[in-house]
């Protein structure tokens, strides 16, 4: 009996299985970024050729991201003229939890064409463990990776008032976090697409009971609370038929909790989690993003 008790105690104390890693799904392993030539599943697959980005405006590079001493090389893409960042408006795009920048390449192309042909700079990155980026994806590493990108923009001369952040799905967490925290360059406006409320909501939504998220994960993301601290204008997009992060359960909670000076919502009927721009219509989507950024 004594041995059994000891065995039990050891099991409890040493048990360490968590579902954190399932929050991040780099899935596909690649050896190089293919961008226009990528043949796999991607966002906005039917994006018209008019949104083409010339090679001269594509800058693929690496940065060293440092999360309190935990360092990793992450890959980033800047769409725009790197030497003119000090004069440009830049959209920092934080992608979702699946795959890598090739999947989101069309989205980046689309955003680069908001308010005119190749009008804005767009910076996106693969968080640690995604695409060709080194390291392990964790919540704090993700924040550090996005913050590293903001510092790169600062080093390249971006001016206060010219940095917008766009968070999609998982990317809503760093987008909100860094809209609150000044990482050297203040975020001017926040755009979220299909954000999730928090880990607790996700667990309860699936469990159907009030189980705490701590039973499964160490992830502390709480966008629904964090958004209360945001003081910059906020624009929210969500598919009314989002089958993954339900609009009323997740996105609306974030939207309702925003207490800043200005907010606008775009609920797109018929859109699910990953097809909002095409269901909304690319021109209409660009118009709405553009109007929000300009005002």
């Amino acid at each position: 009996m004594k041995q059994l008790s000891i065995l039990f105690l050891i099991t409890v104390l040493t048990s360490c299985l968590r579902l954190d890693s399932n929050l991040f799904n780099p899935e596909e392993k690649i050896t190089a970024y293919q961008l226009d030539d990528y043949k796999g599943e991607r966002e906005c697959p039917d994006l018209p050729a008019q949104f083409h980005i010339p090679d001269s405006l594509i800058y693929l590079f690496q940065l060293e991201s440092d999360n309190n001493g935990d360092k990793a090389r992450i890959w980033c893409i800047y769409l725009g003229d790197k030497d003119r960042i000090s004069e440009d408006t830049v959209i920092l795009y934080c992608h979702g939890n699946k795959n890598h920048m090739d999947n989101y390449w069309n989205r980046a192309r689309l955003l680069a064409n908001v308010n005119g042909k190749n009008r804005y700079g767009v910076l996106m990155m693969d968080y640690r463990g995604f695409g060709l980026s080194d390291g392990t994806p964790t919540e704090n590493n993700m924040y550090a990776d996005v913050e590293t990108c903001i510092k790169w923009l600062k080093n390249n001369g971006i001016r206060d008032g010219n940095l917008m952040v766009y968070g999609y799905s998982l990317g809503s967490a760093p987008a909100i976090k860094l809209s609150v925290k000044n990482s050297g360059v203040p975020i001017s406006k926040l755009i979220l697409e299909a954000p999730y409320g928090n880990a607790q909501t996700m667990v309860e939504d699936a469990a159907k009971l009030s189980l705490p998220s701590s039973y499964y994960t160490n992830v502390k993301v709480n966008n629904a609370e964090e958004i209360k601290k945001v003081t910059v204008p906020f624009c929210w997009f969500h598919g009314a038929n989002d089958e993954f992060l339900s609009m009323p359960v997740h996105g609306k909670k974030v939207y309702d909790n925003y207490q800043g000076p200005y907010k606008e919502a775009h609920i797109v009927e018929g859109a699910i989690h990953n097809n909002l721009p095409s269901v909304m219509g690319y021109e209409e989507y660009l118009l709405n993003v553009g109007r929000f950024i300009r005002q």
Partner: peptide, 14 residues
């Protein structure tokens, strides 16, 4: 897209 997010996020959904 993020359909796999949870994937197993819920493997323990008691």
């Amino acid at each position: 897209m993020n359909r796999t997010l949870g994937l197993l996020f819920v493997i323990l959904i008691l």
